[in-house]
Nucleic acid binder design. Structure first.
Lengths: 261, 261
DNA sequence: GACTTAGTTTCAGATAATGGAACCAAACGG
DNA sequence: CCGTTTGGTTCCATTATCTGAAACTAAGTC
């Protein structure tokens, strides 16, 4: 707690509070929030009022509990539709899912963390919203490492500083040094693996989605289990995954920036 | 334009800008935004900077265009999961969809507008996120009228003031008076109809989702076409819909407010 | 090479945020 | 039943923050 950093102005504080409410996972009352922040009573109170006025929060009149507001859901729709790769990538994910029969993840980087923006499940039909929006660690997932490998130096430093390097399994790369060496290897190879680094028995092969100028837009991965397949077999799909990633990148560039001269 | 109203402070302005970006539907450059707002250059600039710092917006370094940021997607996920009825209602929607074979809508009220938070399509499998988050008018949809009918007087006034009463079809209730009369009838009947008021050929039967204390949480509807069925046939489902709505309400109350004594 | 156009920075003044403290209401306890 | 604690809301003088005209820089254009 307390390591919030250099919040910019009132807006920053308001958004802090918004995050705080989001983190709870359930509606919270004033005093609960009060206990979790350093803001003085009156300040927190006004912040909450403002956010509620604005529809970013909703105050349940029965219980006096604050919950995230509907305006956020509306914004979310727009965010997902316009700024994530998901809508563009959808048909390609379908294609990849069908060809591989495995679980597919589409991810983007968010403040040093991996944000899953879409997903295809091996067995079950899609479960959007419930899955997309989830975040995960960057240093020990295939998509995370794929994105980091092509991230520019300064941004990479910032991202590295945000990694916990928690040792999820005995394969986890648990220091920046190990990770940097791995990133170099990934750049050379063109794709990243997850060698059960995040979860025992789960492996994946991931590739970055890059603009022509070499900037990272996101990453795409095919995930499976050691029970079902091997890393080598997954690597056999690397070419296919790269092709799909390239198609997504191409479409992203032509769609999202139509007015490029 | 400029009928923004009584924005509260800097936060309000920042959120205005956020909405503005969201409204565009695609990444926009500074000058495009500049043209659409009354804020002076420097002010808009600083607001955009702040929002970008905070991860609510993302500035594409190649094109200099602002898009909605990933932090928003993350917040959105939380909003949907924690504060909408959708996660609670999911299994019940499935049940209702299966029993009726028709399109199901789950909606909540957001600033006088109907916000669809989940949906089951008659034919195709679920398309979340792509569908949920959409907004629609309240005065001429089944779910909208169902919610308005049980809305407390002052809130109702506010909501009515926000309706456009645009005449979508010749069945549209295009004045507050007609609507109020209809709301009375709906309260008496216990469920609302959409008699092709929004779109020709589209009809529905909707019921409110109410807390024990009588507060509106949302609404649930079964939608069909005049080609496939009739209003009378739909009304035959009203009992079923009400049962499902009651279950959702019950679960919402016990789940979202577990600490009620 | 002068002239737009697009984006960024400055700075004194205006405004809005701050937070300690007082206040109110409801639940609690004796 | 009344004093007290808990939970939430309002006041208001102080001060930090936001404001926005204008100056400035960096790229295009002609």
């Amino acid at each position: 707690m307390g390591a919030e950093g250099h919040s910019d102005g009132t807006v920053g504080k308001a958004l802090d509070v918004l995050d705080l409410v989001a983190r709870q996972g359930a509606p919270v009352r004033f005093s609960d929030l009060m206990a979790q922040t350093d803001y003085p009573k009156a300040t927190l109170y006004r912040l909450l009022q403002t956010l509620t006025n604005q529809g970013m929060l909703a105050l349940d009149p029965d219980t006096g509990a604050y919950a995230l507001g509907m305006r956020l859901v509306r914004l979310a729709h727009a965010a997902w539709a316009q700024s994530s790769l998901a809508p563009i990538a959808r048909p390609y994910l379908d294609e990849l899912a069908e060809k591989t029969g495995e679980t597919i993840h589409l991810a983007q980087m968010d403040q040093g963390q991996v944000l899953y923006v879409d997903k295809r499940n091996a067995a079950k039909p899609v479960e959007m919203f419930a899955q997309a929006g989830k975040v995960g660690p960057a240093y020990c997932t295939g998509v995370g490492k794929a994105m980091l490998a092509w991230t520019a130096p300064e941004a990479l430093d910032q991202a590295l500083a945000r990694q916990s390097f928690y040792r999820h399994t005995d394969q986890t790369l648990d220091t920046p040094e190990k990770l940097l060496a791995e990133l170099k290897a990934i750049r050379a190879r063109g794709h990243a693996f997850d060698r059960e680094e995040h979860e025992k028995g789960i492996i994946c092969c991931a590739v970055p989605i890059l603009t022509r100028s070499g900037r990272v837009l996101g990453a795409l991965s095919v995930t499976s289990t050691t029970a079902r397949t091997t890393l080598e077999a997954l690597e056999g799909q690397a070419g296919l995954i790269k092709d799909i990633a390239a198609k997504i990148a191409a479409e992203a560039e032509s769609w999202r920036f139509p007015e490029q001269n």
